[in-house]
Amino acid sequence: MLPRRFDILLFDAFSNHCLANTVEPLRAANTLANGALYEWRFCTLDGGAVHSSSGLQVAPHMALAEGRGDMLILMPSYAVRQIEPRPLARRLHQVAPRYAALAGFDTGSWLLA
């Protein structure tokens, strides 16, 4: 069985807490299974680094345009109101066919709505 792949789309001011609550259960499941049940990658709209609300810098694995997997998880958090929804919607429509599901964690559900 192939591992399930989750791409996590991070935006500036994302919450470290939400990111850890997403990734750590996947990591723990892999540890308990003694194998790779899940894989995850971080992406951003342009492939550039982002900073969490507490200043932690994350260098993504890729830009959103390169993504593909079982699920794309949007994780904008605190700066969600600074994100222009229409350009983001166009980008999501472009990549959505490459994912089995889209999910919004934290304030990501607002963006998907």
Rank of each mutant, 00 (worst) to 15 (best):
R27E: 13
G55A: 01
A28F: 07
T31R: 15
E24P: 00
S54K: 07
A33D: 09
N30G: 03
Q57L: 07
G47E: 05
C43S: 02
N30L: 04
G48L: 04
N34A: 14
P60C: 13
S53D: 12
Q57E: 14
L45I: 09
L32V: 09
L45Q: 12
V58L: 12
F42G: 12
G55H: 04
G48Q: 12
A33M: 09
R27F: 01
A29G: 09
W40L: 06
G48V: 04
L32M: 09
G35I: 08
V50E: 00
N34R: 14
P60K: 08
V23C: 14
G48W: 00
S53M: 07
P60I: 08
P25Y: 02
P60A: 06
V50T: 11
S53G: 05
L26H: 09
Y38V: 03
A49G: 10
G47T: 04
V50Q: 05
A29P: 02
R41L: 07
T31F: 12
A49L: 05
N30F: 05
F42P: 01
W40I: 04
W40P: 05
D46A: 11
G35A: 12
G48E: 10
A28K: 14
S54G: 01
L37E: 12
A28N: 00
E24K: 01
S54D: 13
L56W: 03
L26N: 06
N30D: 11
G55M: 04
G48T: 02
A28C: 05
A28M: 10
G55I: 01
G47N: 10
F42R: 05
Q57P: 01
T31D: 07
H51F: 03
P60Y: 11
T44L: 08
A28T: 14
S53V: 14
Y38D: 06
G48Y: 00
A36Y: 12
S52P: 08
T44Q: 05
G55D: 02
A33Q: 13
A36D: 15
H51Y: 06
E39H: 15
G35V: 06
V23E: 05
L45A: 01
F42A: 12
L45W: 00
D46M: 05
A59R: 15
P25K: 12
S54V: 09
A49H: 02
G35L: 06
L56N: 01
E24N: 00
H51N: 07
L56A: 06
S52G: 09
R27I: 08
S53K: 15
L45G: 02
D46H: 05
P25R: 05
A29Q: 12
S52M: 08
H51R: 14
D46Q: 07
G47C: 07
G55C: 01
G48H: 10
A29L: 10
W40A: 03
A28G: 00
W40M: 03
R41W: 03
W40C: 08
L26F: 11
D46R: 04
P60M: 10
R41H: 15
A59T: 13
E39V: 07
L26K: 04
E39T: 14
T44R: 13
G35T: 11
L32D: 01
